[in-house]
Amino acid sequence: MSFRTPPNPNAVAAFESFFQGWLVRQEHYLDELLSSQQNSHESHDSDLTELISRVLSHYQHYYEEKSKLANCDVFLVFSPTWFTPFERTFFWIAGFKPALTFRLVNNAVTDLTDEQKRRLGVLVSETKAEERELGEELARIQESVAAPPIAELVRREGRGGLRDGEVDDAGEVFEALRAAMEGVVGRADLLRTRTAEKVVEVLSPVQNVRFLTAATQLQQRIRVWGLQKEEGRRGSSGSGWY
């Protein structure tokens, strides 16, 4: 008897279908961002602001759908099958580290004013402090899983050796673990979105177009590299070299 509920295949399939469509829409947004960047001298701030709002909404949609999936199976979002192994090497708590935002700004925006630099410096400190807090919380959760009583229940469950009463106990432990993990992912995603929103508030519309272009290009570049690595691995496996 198992205390763990298997992932809902319909929920997983629905999310993967959503994600493929999301990537297509991301390509379209990148085209718009690049066009606006090239013609920024002809664009009105209101037009750029409207585009920026749509791009941010696009990313927010991803986090909303991801939250729904995490509610069904939070452990899956920690090792998402819709990302390649290479992409996952960049992840921190089921997604990119929020502080990466500031590296992108520094690389893409070279005309920051002193006041903008000051405000961004404050955001950097606040964001890194929250990252440390979340990292410590996740470490505590992981340590609790490795504690002898829980680890023994998991091992015995894997061998099918739990009795009815133990299944109830293990189920309660597992549910508490699931809730804790879901909470950490939710807070990490909130920090990611909130950091981006605060950066957008600091930058001008033209600067934001450059920032969002760089962020989108980096994400797409990492994905392409990941897919190429997977293709190369499959090709090498089929060649008899290994």
Rank of each mutant, 00 (worst) to 15 (best):
66 K>F: 05
57 S>I: 00
78 F>Q: 10
58 H>K: 06
54 R>I: 03
69 L>G: 03
48 L>M: 14
85 P>G: 01
49 T>N: 15
78 F>V: 00
67 S>Q: 09
84 T>Y: 00
67 S>N: 09
56 L>R: 13
39 N>R: 14
70 A>C: 14
49 T>R: 15
88 R>N: 03
73 D>N: 14
56 L>Q: 14
74 V>P: 05
39 N>G: 08
74 V>C: 07
59 Y>T: 13
81 T>G: 08
66 K>T: 04
68 K>L: 09
48 L>G: 03
67 S>V: 02
66 K>I: 01
45 D>A: 10
61 H>P: 02
73 D>F: 05
70 A>M: 12
67 S>A: 15
45 D>G: 02
46 S>V: 14
65 E>D: 11
42 E>V: 12
83 F>N: 11
68 K>H: 06
57 S>N: 12
57 S>Y: 04
47 D>H: 12
80 P>I: 00
85 P>M: 01
40 S>Q: 12
39 N>P: 07
63 Y>K: 10
58 H>G: 02
60 Q>F: 05
60 Q>I: 04
70 A>G: 15
58 H>V: 01
60 Q>E: 12
69 L>I: 08
73 D>H: 13
74 V>G: 05
72 C>W: 07
55 V>F: 03
54 R>L: 09
84 T>Q: 01
56 L>E: 13
86 F>H: 11
87 E>P: 05
59 Y>N: 13
74 V>R: 09
86 F>T: 06
61 H>T: 13
83 F>P: 00
74 V>S: 09
63 Y>A: 09
45 D>C: 00
42 E>M: 10
70 A>L: 03
51 L>H: 08
46 S>G: 05
71 N>A: 14
85 P>N: 01
84 T>L: 00
70 A>E: 14
63 Y>H: 11
46 S>H: 12
47 D>N: 13
60 Q>P: 04
57 S>W: 02
88 R>F: 00
82 W>L: 05
79 S>T: 12
45 D>K: 08
68 K>Q: 10
49 T>I: 11
66 K>P: 07
40 S>E: 09
50 E>I: 05
58 H>Y: 02
44 H>P: 05
60 Q>A: 14
58 H>R: 03
50 E>G: 11
84 T>F: 00
85 P>L: 00
72 C>Y: 11
48 L>E: 07
79 S>P: 02
62 Y>M: 06
77 V>G: 07
70 A>I: 09
74 V>T: 09
60 Q>Y: 10
42 E>R: 15
83 F>I: 00
50 E>C: 12
64 E>C: 04
77 V>W: 03
85 P>R: 01
60 Q>T: 14
50 E>T: 15
44 H>F: 06
71 N>W: 02
45 D>P: 08
71 N>P: 06
48 L>P: 10
57 S>G: 12
78 F>W: 08
46 S>F: 08
78 F>C: 03
68 K>P: 02
69 L>K: 09
72 C>D: 15
60 Q>W: 04
51 L>K: 06
44 H>K: 14
62 Y>P: 08
88 R>K: 15
81 T>D: 10
76 L>F: 12
51 L>P: 05
75 F>C: 06
79 S>C: 05
67 S>T: 13
75 F>H: 14
41 H>W: 04
40 S>T: 10
54 R>K: 15
46 S>K: 14
69 L>S: 05
68 K>S: 03
86 F>P: 01
